[in-house]
Each structure stands twice: as C-alpha cells, then as structure tokens.
C-alpha cells in the first residue's frame, strides 16, 4: 500500500470505505441531503456565488447528478469500495463530496468518532483538493446551513432534537421564545422571593435558579438569532441542564395552545424525557 501522502483522492476514499462499513450508509444519506439542500436553496446560492472554477449552474448540475447517483446506486456504493471511491471522489463530483464531508464533520453528532477523525485526517488535512475547496471560497459561496442530521429518534441528542423542532416549526419560534422569556423571568423573580414551590428532584434549587438566569440572559442577548437560527436556538436554550428548565416551560406553553395537536405531539415526542414529572409544571402555571 502507498503512503497516505502519495495516494490520490479516490484511493484515499477507497482506503477508508472498508474500515467503516457501518458509517458509509449514513454518510451517503448525508451527502444526498446536502446535494438536495443545495438545489432547494438555488436562489440564495446563485446570488452569492463567487467561485471561479465552477459556475453556479455547474454546481447545481453536480448536485443533481450526485443526488441521482446516490439514490440509484446506493446499494453498490455501500458494498463496493471502488465504486464508492471512483464515483464520488473523482473529477468534478469530488468537489461536492468533499464539500458535503466538510459539512458532515461540522455536525455535532459524535464529533470525535474514529470515522470522523479518519475523514478529517485523510480527506480534510491530507487532501489538497479538499483544502483547495475550502480555500477558494466554496464554503462561503454556497452558504447553506448544514442539513439536519436525522437518525433514529432514540439515537438523537437533545441538541439535535431541538434543532429539528425549530426546523419543523419555524413560525412558532417568535411567540414561543417570547413565552420562554416571560415565564423564566416570572419564575426567577418568584424564586428570588422564595414564593415558588420547588419540587424538581433532579436539579438543586440554586442551580435551577441559576439556569433560569442563564436562559433569560441568553434570550435577552440573542433573541433574534435564537428565533431565526436552529443551531443557536438549540445551543442557547438546550445545552446541558438548561434543556430541563426550558422543556418545563415549553410544556407550560402547550397549555396555551391546547388545540395544536402537532405542536403537542412534537414536544412530547422530542422532549418528554426531560420534563419534570413531579408535578411542578402545574404549580408553575400560576406564575
């Protein structure tokens, strides 16, 4: 086998493929999602296009071709390292594949998994093509949000579920975030006065009060970003134990939207595990 630095890009891809057979199907799904998302955001991409080696139309055609290839030859690309390598990592197609892998590496799911480390090392750092694709402004010129990484619900993290929730209900975000702020402020005020019956057994009272303060601060400082950007929504409101505080408030919000079965279903589906089951939400509904 050649040393890594002497390998061509398809050879590197063919080298990685058999090492991680279980990781290839989700990677292909992700690349397919990237190719489709780019197509969906054609107008924005066209308006901001600044690459010199490709026109925006060539980029869209590349996306269409790659999406089509993955859709129709998925089984072959999963089972055959050579087909995977020479179909997706040769010629112009490689530009989109490397771009998609760059986005994939940015997703928060298992950031230090061996597969991601290898991808980063072998393709990202070692590949001049990949570096070039970053340097020449591909990432900027095709400014799109990395597609959501959807997996089986039970394997999704709270942050990923929060992102998905934001994505599914974009028009709900302004009233919802405003409600979180109002309720958190009221709860914080009552907590300071000691007039709130606190029953949540999994978070000490002082920590809960501190978390409320963080939620208030985050919303006050980043209201617009939180309502508009799914990643910021997740990061600012659902990181670690803040999620528990926010989820309790979300279920209070639901009491104001009883007729909305979809919102209720989504909240229960994504966040019911974080909800306080000790009865506090009801007592808080009076705050």
């Amino acid at each position: 086998m050649k040393p890594l630095k002497n390998m061509t890009l398809p050879e590197k891809a063919a080298f990685i493929h058999p090492l991680f057979p279980d990781e290839i199907p989700p990677l292909l799904e992700y690349l397919h999602e990237v190719a489709t998302s780019v197509k969906e955001m054609a107008d924005i991409i066209r308006a901001t296009w600044n690459r010199h080696d490709l026109t925006a139309d060539q980029w869209f055609s590349l996306c269409e071709h790659t999406a089509d290839t993955i859709e129709h030859r998925k089984a072959e690309l999963i089972s055959d390292a050579s087909a995977f390598a020479f179909t997706l990592f040769q010629g112009e197609t490689a530009k989109l594949s490397l771009y998609g892998i760059g986005l994939y590496l940015d997703t928060r799911r298992h950031p230090n998994s061996p597969f991601k480390v290898i991808l980063r090392t072998v393709l990202h750092r070692a590949s001049p093509d990949f570096q070039a694709s970053l340097d020449d402004g591909t990432q900027n010129s095709t400014t799109i949000k990395p597609p959501l990484l959807i997996t089986a619900l039970k394997r999704m993290t709270t942050l990923e579920k929060a992102e998905l929730f934001h994505h599914l209900f974009p028009t709900e975000m302004e009233p919802l975030v405003a409600f979180i702020l109002r309720t958190a402020e009221k709860q914080y005020e009552n907590a300071q006065k000691g007039t709130i019956p606190y029953t949540r057994p999994d978070i000490p009272f002082d920590q809960w009060r501190w978390l409320l303060g963080r939620v208030i601060q985050n919303i006050e400082q980043h209201y617009h970003e939180i309502t508009r950007d799914r990643e910021i929504f997740a990061f600012r409101l659902f990181k670690n134990l803040m999620a528990n505080v926010v989820v309790d408030i979300l279920f209070l919000y639901l009491e104001t939207r009883k007729e909305d079965t979809k919102l209720r279903a989504a909240l229960i589906l994504f966040f019911v595990d974080l909800k306080d089951h000790s009865g506090k939400p009801e007592s808080n509904s009076n705050v």
Partner: peptide
C-alpha cells in the same frame, strides 16, 4: 413515541 410521531406527521 410512535403514536406521537403519527400525530405529528399525519394528525
């Protein structure tokens, strides 16, 4: 969860 997913998507 499956019930709620059904409600969410096809309610």
């Amino acid at each position: 969860p499956f019930y709620y997913a059904y409600l969410l998507f096809f309610g």
